[in-house]
């Protein structure tokens, strides 16, 4: 399978503090890949480095095109959707306006309207609250909105930052089920960042383990799941 995303020698820093060191990983077209790690390992920063909201050096090739040095807006326009840390809700705008914003760079108005309906079919609760201020939604609903908003771009690659964060297990299960469905039906490739390793390994086909800004273990999910260190430290059995 051709590689959709190829990261080579990626460094990232906030001011003088370097957070990522010489990261190398790749993601094949249509795949779900997980990045695991503890708090502060650099998971969120990895996603930020891909969409260029943090100072980076090295190489990030998306479908053969270099992302390093591009403006975030341009990376998005190339088809990289992002469900950010903290969900990035436009709290004072309505649910529907949030969805429309997700499709801001698209010009095919009729298709956008269909995609909004598709989002409502996927998450009926968003439809019930379509005219409500997005800030009034519950955490789970805001996560559904964040995923739907990113999908409105019709991305080829979806970056997901801890979609399970702070949510009840039932809601998490529903969101992960829908993410798998989106991956299977719409062939959206996903790069998933998670602290919840067992959850992430259940969804992703490949995984990388991050420790203080460096990739320490990588491989197919099955192999990672059976790795003794991962099992002890991250899966806890």
């Amino acid at each position: 399978m051709p590689e959709l995303l190829e990261v080579k020698g990626l460094n990232a820093s906030y001011g003088a503090t370097q957070v990522l060191y010489d990261m190398n990983f790749s993601l094949a077209q249509g795949q779900i890949t997980a990045i695991l790690g503890a708090n502060g390992a650099g998971k969120t920063t990895t996603l930020r480095a891909i969409c260029q909201t943090v100072k980076t050096s090295g190489s990030v090739l998306f479908d053969g095109q270099q992302l390093v040095g591009k403006a975030t807006e341009s990376v998005v326009r190339m088809g990289v959707g992002h469900v950010p840390d903290g969900r990035g809700t436009f709290t004072a705008l309505s649910v529907e306006e949030n969805l429309k914003l997700g499709a801001y760079v698209r010009k095919d108005r009729a298709e956008v309207a269909l995609d909004i309906e598709r989002a409502y079919t996927r998450f009926p609760r968003l439809k019930e609250r379509r005219n409500q201020q997005a800030g009034t939604l519950s955490g789970g609903e805001q996560q559904m909105l964040a995923i739907s908003r990113a999908l409105m771009l019709r991305p080829r690659l979806l970056l997901l930052d801890e979609p399970s964060f702070g949510l009840a297990p039932l809601i998490v299960a529903e969101i992960f089920r829908i993410m798998r469905k989106i991956n299977e039906e719409e062939k959206v490739s996903m790069l998933l960042v998670e602290q919840n390793a067992s959850l992430a390994l259940g969804l992703a086909s490949h995984a990388y383990l991050l420790e203080t800004g460096r990739i320490v273990i990588s491989g197919p999910s099955e192999q990672i799941r059976n790795d003794e260190t991962v099992r002890k430290v991250y899966l806890g059995y």
Binding site: C51, V76, R77, H82, Y104
Partner: peptide
């Protein structure tokens, strides 16, 4: 309202 998030949808 949310410049960081706006950039992430391509604004």
């Amino acid at each position: 309202q949310n410049p960081d998030s706006a950039k992430l949808v391509g604004v």
